[in-house]
Design a protein around this nucleic acid. Structure first.
Lengths: 227, 227
DNA sequence: TTTATTTTGTACTCGTTGGTACAAAATACT
DNA sequence: AGTATTTTGTACCAACGAGTACAAAATAAA
């Protein structure tokens, strides 16, 4: 969690692509040889994310993926490899999309309390998919199950969690420097609490708790953290 | 989280049964009519728990369940209904098994700090299945995915989470009365933090974090909570 | 226009899936 | 012993699973 441009989109509906290769020198638009692809790789990832998010890896069939993306199976294979690899790609894409959103929340200048709530609100915005209520975090609510099947998934999740924690640590350090926290405050411990709160949103949201209740939950936690 | 006898077993290996119907008057051993069951319902639940815990609902086949329990499919159906109902039964059984363990941890007389750590150690003992590393909480690591397929699963999980939180609340209230906490301590907020910490174990353990790291994590959190 | 190259789309394979029909087996009641 | 009742075990089914072969289509290069 160190860099990345700010992104204003809500994570779940991020579908459009921006043809970012305008000023690129050469290798960006290589003018491929054969029949042009009929699909947009990024849009396909988002579409699959939606399915995996709701049904999980194992309950999602290639037919589901095919229907969601509009790609036929051979194209899916050519683009993403087998189901396991496709799932990894979706997970990575999810994490890569979320990261800048959180970074933006962390960066926005605000007092500690608001800053923390801004991060949590980012999560809520991501987890509260308008198309389907109560999705929770994709990593925790849908990918975590598959850790035993594919350990790489576990590594990705753990790394993302630690990344998030690092973000909280930096924010608390800054707060300490700014005198928003007592000089003897345990920054790491606070970050773990904040991070735990973040996990709780993921879980409880997926389990069906209302957004209002979750907000109240978080507010109370923040009250203890900043005091 | 109000009652329940203390149970010394580690949750995951609880298989033996105790023929608890000794002093019961009549209806306990009704001397059933037909061919006697060749399976032990409780043992079967534990066996299925193991499979569901590792693979999740969708990746678990009836063949898996059959192999784990030693029951053939018709018997599975007669005993538990279809796969969805069997999963619910397993989840309920898991929660029912865990509850008294936590209650015992909460009840054991100890200073607040040790008391909290005792609860967390209970979780670690449950989640750290000796047969398979890094299982995490069954509810969060394996059942949470299936909330969209079966909302009843979500209700069970949420209720168990709140139940756990209630346990923390009561412990903090007791601590307050005993003068272990300042008189103005926000008991509910503390309970939410403690509860969040509990969720974090579930997640990070499943994701593959080491038990040592998790213990350190929790110790730091507790330090902030009791101070 | 022809050829090389790449993607698409249809149609397949074949193992697995959840669920069930039905006869044999094992018990209690009469 | 005979009958009613319940469980077991085998065998089966139709649907679905992931993955692939291959011809048609669409492009760039020659």
């Amino acid at each position: 969690m160190q860099d990345g441009g700010a992104c204003q989109e809500i994570l779940c509906n991020m579908v459009q692509k921006e043809e970012s290769d305008v000023t690129m020198p050469a290798s960006a638009a290589p003018k491929l040889r054969g029949r042009p692809k009929a699909y947009d790789r990024d849009a396909a990832l988002k579409a699959m994310r939606q399915v995996f998010w709701t049904k999980g890896f194992s309950a999602t069939s290639l037919d589901d993926m095919s229907a969601a993306t509009g790609m036929n199976r051979p194209s899916l294979y050519a683009a993403f490899g087998d189901k396991t690899e496709a799932f990894r790609a979706v997970l990575k894409d999810y994490i890569d999309d979320a990261r800048p959103l959180y970074l933006a929340a962390f960066r926005t200048p605000a007092p500690l309390r608001e800053s923390l709530m801004k991060v949590y609100e980012t999560s809520i915005a991501i987890y509260h998919n308008p198309q389907a209520q109560g999705m929770g975090c994709f990593m925790i609510g849908a990918a975590l199950t598959d850790v035993k099947r594919d350990p790489e998934v576990g590594e990705m999740i753990l790394s993302a969690l630690k990344d998030m924690e690092a973000g909280f640590i930096r924010r608390f350090e800054k707060a300490k420097e700014a005198g928003e926290l007592p000089a003897d405050a345990d920054v790491k411990a606070l970050a773990r609490i904040a991070s735990s709160g973040h996990n709780t949103i993921s879980v409880r949201m997926r389990a069906g708790e209302s957004v209002d209740d979750i907000r109240q939950y978080l507010t109370q936690m923040v009250d203890v953290m900043v005091r």
